[in-house]
């Protein structure tokens, strides 16, 4: 079964999968037994998937992370949590749909959820501004974080954005201040914060809701100081250097573990989260719950300090 917007390196796998589908159809229609052939092809497809997806280049990871079929924040909210109630608005200017927030239950835990919201098609992407927040999105995040603290509820954030929106209105209303203030509030909030990077972690717009006691990242997600396209344009002055930029930026989950920026990689189903969203959501849920359990043991007054100590260690220099 071909997935909408499939990537070049997925094509050979999809060809085999199409063949399998065809043979199954023939088996049914003409009552010929192809089960041996199908089995062989399935083994081959599985091997191929493992081969391709365990050796993705940084640029291929970027494409995976941006895949429109990839489960989004809204998908995880639907699949992992129950009784989600969306909370809207920053109480200052307007409701920014590029960031979704609300309350929900996760097994026995009552939690706050804050995440970037991307669409699945042109219409919804326009509605959510492609997941690129304005200042009011970050100010909504601040409002919800303060509310979570007031009622001692853990916060779970989902990161998936190309970046904060670069526009006239965003600048007029203080995009820089909004991001900085969100960082400040998230650094001091006295409840557990779990950050999950599910897709594209684009620069300051991602980082703003990215301070946490535990930072988890999906296997094929990326997280970078700047998009490879932006980096190629600025440093190389040549948009064709995007792939090289992606390689240099060290933006994959493995890179981020090595650099000690994230705590844990959440394995994805073979072939990527977009191929089996349900399975992916189970893995994400398990990781979040085990983090919640761990963080319950830490006295609430020490949570902010724990986050600070984690941040404090990040940096490499000669003394």
């Amino acid at each position: 079964m071909a997935i909408v917007g499939s990537l070049d390196f997925e094509k050979p796998i999809e060809e085999i999968e199409d063949k399998i589908a065809e043979l199954s159809k023939l088996t049914q229609e003409r009552e010929i037994d192809f089960s041996q052939e199908i089995k062989k092809l399935e083994v081959k497809a599985q091997e191929m998937k493992k081969e391709v997806f365990s050796n993705l280049t940084p640029w291929q990871k970027v494409l995976m992370a941006r895949h429109t079929g990839r489960p989004s924040t809204m998908d995880y909210i639907r699949m992992i949590f129950k009784d989600f109630i969306e909370l809207c608005g920053d109480r200052l200017f307007k409701e920014d749909k590029a960031i979704v927030g609300g309350i929900a239950e996760l097994d026995d835990y009552k939690v706050f959820i804050i995440g970037h919201r991307k669409g699945k098609d042109t219409k919804s992407n326009l509605e959510y501004n492609f997941g690129m927040p304005h200042p009011e999105g970050y100010r909504k995040a601040i409002r919800l974080a303060n509310l979570a603290e007031k009622f001692s509820k853990p916060i779970i954030t989902f990161i998936d954005t190309p970046g904060a929106y670069p526009g006239v209105g965003a600048e007029e209303r203080g995009q820089g201040e909004a991001i900085a203030r969100t960082l400040q509030v998230f650094s001091k909030i006295q409840v557990p914060i779990i950050v999950v990077i599910i897709g594209e972690g684009g620069s300051g717009g991602a980082l703003a809701i990215g301070i946490g006691n535990r930072i988890l990242m999906l296997e094929h997600a990326v997280y970078s100081v700047i998009s490879p396209e932006g980096c190629a344009a600025i440093l190389w002055n040549d948009p064709s250097k995007t792939i090289e930029a992606a390689k240099n930026l060290s933006l994959t989950a493995n890179d981020l573990v090595r650099l000690k920026v994230i705590d844990e990689i959440i394995k994805e189903p073979v072939g990527g989260a977009h191929r089996s969203p349900e399975e992916a959501s189970c893995l994400v849920k398990d990781s979040i719950i085990s983090c919640l359990k761990e963080l319950q043991e830490i006295p609430i007054s020490e949570l902010a300090l724990e986050r600070y100590q984690k941040l404090r260690k990040i940096g490499k220099y000669l003394e």
């Binding site: 440093l235 404090r312 990040i314």
Partner: peptide, 18 residues
């Protein structure tokens, strides 16, 4: 942020603000 230091430079933002 200094792009040549990748994600580590991005996290200097949260470190200084904290």
């Amino acid at each position: 942020a200094r792009m040549q230091e990748g994600i580590i430079s991005l996290f200097q933002m949260s470190k200084t603000v904290a």
